[in-house]
Design a protein around this nucleic acid. Structure first.
Length: 206
DNA sequence: GGGCGGATTACCT
DNA sequence: GGTAATCCGCCCA
């Protein structure tokens, strides 16, 4: 497993990075508990010109400060007071681009994820949706600002290559307040993957 | 200092 | 389809 270097994140095209993150491996190892999974859904947030971004028009607060740091750090924020959402900061210092990790296909550490999410059985909902990704992987706002190549949160490349025709782009979820920017095709997902969000069917039995 | 709402989710009818 | 859970940031005073 090759861990993605900071240079992967410090490129200028956040939309391309969001697409390239599909198929990569999210790894956390908090308290000696290793959890890994394949990223199957992402969204790009294009900084100060993107009405859907927390950093739109240069809005800079303690919460969003890490987005203004160098690419390759984790930006974690609390949504609705209870969901810890994992983002990857991209581009150079002072350019607040980010990619939201919206869904992950669990690979290892399933038992740990079940404990963290208080679920009884492993089904496609385990790390489906950004709130569940944070919960299953044990990510909290306290981890915001950590480097992704050296900390307890990392993203790796196991050599898997997702064919281009298996990548679908759509408009982003839950950003209707962003007017015309809500229509931008900045959400990327793996075609036919059951761990992708926006699909209410879960465990259909057999 | 007060009020409002969100890059969500799960469970209700 | 509707709404509770739950808290921080932001806006306005």
């Amino acid at each position: 497993m090759k861990i993605l270097p900071a240079s992967f994140y410090q490129r200028t095209d956040v939309v391309a990075i969001a697409k390239e993150l599909l198929g990569k491996i999210l790894i956390t190892d908090f308290d000696g508990l290793l959890t890994t999974g394949r990223i199957v859904e992402t969204e790009a947030y294009n900084g100060v010109t993107d009405k859907a971004s927390h950093a739109f028009a240069g809005r800079r607060t303690r919460r969003t400060e890490v987005m203004f740091g160098s690419g390759g750090t984790a930006y974690v924020y609390l949504c609705y007071g209870l969901h810890h959402m994992l983002n990857v900061v991209t581009n150079a210092k002072e350019i607040p681009h980010a990619v939201l990790i919206r869904a992950v296909e669990p690979l290892s550490g399933i038992e740990t994820m079940l404990k963290r999410t208080e679920k009884k059985i492993f089904d496609s909902s385990l790390a489906k949706g950004p709130g569940n990704v944070g919960k299953a992987f044990g990510i909290r706002v306290a981890h915001s600002g950590q480097m992704l190549d050296t900390s307890h949160i990392r993203i790796g490349d196991d050599g898997f290559r997702l064919p281009d025709e298996d990548v679908i782009s759509t408009k982003r979820i839950g950003v209707d307040y962003a007017a015309e920017d809500a229509l931008l095709p900045y959400r990327f997902l793996v075609r036919g993957n059951k761990y992708v969000s926006g699909n209410k069917t879960q465990n259909t039995g057999s």
